[in-house]
C-alpha cells in the first residue's frame, strides 16, 4: 500500500507496510501513482501527454527502473504481512504495567472543557485518594505485572497537587518496593500549575520522569477556557511558575500541554507564544467534548485545522533553521527506530496493560472512562471482575477496527483512543474527526523529517 502526498514543496511517498519513506521528483511521483495499474507504454504515453517534451522517453524508463528496483528491495508496494500474524489478540495474556492514579478528584480550576467535570468525573464526589488506597494500588500493579520490569504510574486528577503529601508518600513507597519486587517505577504527573512551589519543583526534579504542565497558549485563549473557581483567569498565576519550573528542569522531560477548541483554530499562534516564552517541549491537542458544546471541533473546521497544522510545521522548520528547535509532541516521529510492530498494532493498552484507579480504588480502562459505571472493570481489592470487557479491549487493535485496517496511518497511530465510544458507542470504531487530524499530523511530521534531512545535506 502506498500513500503519497505533496506538502510544503515536497513530494512524499510512504510505503505503508515497510515503513519506507521516499522524497521524489514530479516525474517519479506521477509514475508511482499509476505504476500498478498501467503498462510501461501506457505510463510513457501518460507522462508525455501531461508534460510534453519536459521528460524524454529515456528519463521515463529510467525512473520506472528505479521504482522497480525499490519494489524488488521491499521499499515500494510492499504487501501487508502483519494482518494475519496479529489476528489472535483475544487469546494473548496481558499484564498490567501502567496505572493512571486519580490522586485527586478535586480541582482548583474550573476549565470549561474538562472531561473530568472539574474533577468530579460525572457524579463521582469530590475526594482525595488516601495513602492506604494509593499503596494498595501500587501493590496491585506489582502483583499483576507478571515479568514486566518497567512499571509506570501517572498522578492525575483533578489536580494532583491538591494531594501532594500522598503523592510524595506513594513515590517513597514505590521506591521502597522496587528492589525486592524487581521492578522500576517511572512516575509522571500532570498539573495545572496553581500549586507549584519550590518544594514541589525540587521533588519533581528528583522523582518525576515527565511532568505535563497545562497551558493553552496566549493569555486570552487560556483564560477563556481555564478560569479559576472565582472566574479569574489562571495565566498570570501559572506562567511565571511554569517558566521557573522549566528553567530548573535540566535534561528531565516535561511538556507544556494545551487544548485547542473552536475558539482558537489559529492555534499555531498559541504554539508560537509558548515557544517564545521559552518552552521547548510543547503539545497542543484538539478538545474532546460533546458535539453540542459551542467550542467543540466540527467537521467544517477540519480544513482550517489542517491548514493550521501546515503552518505549525513550517514554523517548526524555521525554528530549527535558526538553531532554536522546539519539539511538538505529535510531530515526533521516529522513522529509523520507533516501537516494534507488535506495539504499533496493539494500540494504547487501555483496559489491558493500562488502567485508571479512582480515589476509592475502582478500576476503569483509562481516565476518559472514569465515572461511566458501564466500564467499571473491578477494584484494586478484588481485581478485575469484568473479564469479558477486558477481552473487548484486548481486541482494540488496528486490524479489528474496520476504519483502521486499511488506513495508511495505522502503523503510526495504532487505532487511536478506545474512547471513540463517546462518539460511536463502540470501542471498536474510530473517532472520525480525530482520525482526519491524526492523519494530517503524520503527513506533517514526515514532511518535517524531509525538510530537516535536506537541511543536514546542505550543511
Amino acid at each position: 500500500m502506498i500513500h503519497q502526498y505533496k506538502n510544503n514543496g515536497y513530494n512524499i511517498v510512504l510505503d505503508v507496510c515497510s515503513g519506507s519513506v521516499h522524497v521524489v521528483d514530479d516525474l517519479c511521483y506521477d509514475i508511482i501513482e499509476m505504476y500498478e495499474g498501467k503498462s510501461q507504454d501506457e505510463i510513457v504515453a501518460a507522462i508525455r501527454s501531461k508534460y510534453g517534451e519536459l521528460y524524454t522517453e529515456k528519463d521515463i524508463l529510467e525512473a520506472c527502473e528505479d521504482i522497480e528496483e525499490l519494489k524488488k528491495e521491499g521499499q515500494l508496494f510492499t504487501e501487508d504481512v502483519y494482518k494475519d500474524i496479529i489476528i489472535d489478540h483475544k487469546k494473548r495474556k496481558t499484564v498490567v504495567k501502567a496505572l493512571c492514579l486519580h490522586i485527586a478528584h478535586d480541582c482548583n480550576l474550573a476549565c470549561k472543557y474538562c472531561f473530568a467535570d472539574e474533577g468530579e468525573y460525572h457524579g463521582q464526589k469530590r475526594e482525595l485518594m488516601s495513602l492506604e488506597v494509593g499503596k494498595k494500588a501500587l501493590d496491585f500493579l506489582i502483583e499483576n505485572s507478571g515479568n514486566r520490569v518497567n512499571l509506570e504510574v501517572d498522578f492525575f486528577g483533578g489536580e494532583p497537587l491538591m494531594n501532594f503529601d500522598v503523592v510524595k508518600e506513594l513515590v517513597a513507597y514505590g521506591r521502597s518496593r522496587e528492589k525486592e519486587a524487581g521492578k522500576n517505577f517511572r512516575f509522571t504527573l500532570t498539573t495545572n500549575g496553581m500549586l507549584l512551589n519550590d518544594e514541589v519543583i525540587d521533588f519533581c526534579n528528583r522523582e518525576i520522569s515527565n511532568v505535563v504542565l497545562s497551558l493553552d497558549g496566549r493569555k486570552e485563549v487560556n483564560d477563556l477556557m481555564r478560569p479559576s473557581r472565582n472566574g479569574k483567569g489562571s495565566y498570570d498565576i501559572i506562567v511565571p511558575k511554569f517558566k521557573k519550573f522549566v528553567e530548573s528542569r535540566g535534561d528531565k522531560s516535561y511538556y507544556v500541554r494545551g487544548t485547542f477548541t473552536r475558539n482558537n483554530l489559529d492555534f499555531t499562534e498559541d504554539f508560537k507564544h509558548m515557544a517564545d516564552l521559552g518552552f521547548k517541549e510543547i503539545s497542543i491537542e484538539p478538545v474532546v467534548s460533546p458535539d453540542e458544546s459551542e467550542y467543540a471541533i466540527r467537521e467544517e473546521d477540519i480544513e482550517k485545522i489542517c491548514q493550521e497544522y501546515d503552518k505549525l510545521a513550517v514554523d517548526i522548520i524555521d525554528r530549527h533553521k535558526k538553531g532554536k528547535p522546539v519539539t511538538f509532541f505529535h510531530y515526533m516521529l521516529d522513522l529509523t527506530g520507533g516501537p516494534c510492530v507488535y506495539k504499533r498494532l496493539s494500540g494504547c493498552g487501555s483496559g489491558t496493560e493500562y488502567l485508571a484507579v479512582t480515589p476509592t480504588g475502582e478500576l476503569y480502562p483509562c481516565h476518559q472512562f472514569v465515572g461511566n459505571e458501564e466500564f467499571k472493570l473491578g477494584d484494586i481489592y478484588n481485581g478485575i471482575q469484568k473479564n469479558d470487557l477486558v477481552d473487548e479491549f484486548k481486541m482494540c487493535n488496528v486490524y479489528a477496527k474496520e476504519k483502521c485496517k486499511d488506513c495508511y496511518a495505522r502503523f503510526y497511530c495504532s487505532g487511536g483512543a478506545a474512547n471513540s465510544y463517546q462518539f460511536h458507542n463502540s470501542i471498536l470504531d474510530a473517532y472520525d474527526i480525530g482520525c482526519e487530524l491524526q492523519r494530517k499530523r503524520i503527513e506533517c511530521a514526515i514532511m518535517i523529517k524531509a525538510a530537516l534531512a535536506e537541511l543536514e545535506e546542505g550543511e
Binding site: V23, D66, H330, P339, F411, S414
Partner: peptide
C-alpha cells in the same frame, strides 16, 4: 536532483516500552 531520495527504508514484543498515539514512542 536525484529523482528518488529515500529518507528511511523498512523501519518496521517485549512489553517493556512506555505506555498515555504510539508512533512517536521509542523501543530494547
Amino acid at each position: 536532483m536525484k529523482r528518488i531520495k529515500t529518507l528511511t527504508n523498512k523501519t518496521l514484543g517485549c512489553g517493556e516500552c512506555q505506555t498515555c498515539t504510539v508512533g512517536n514512542q521509542s523501543c530494547n
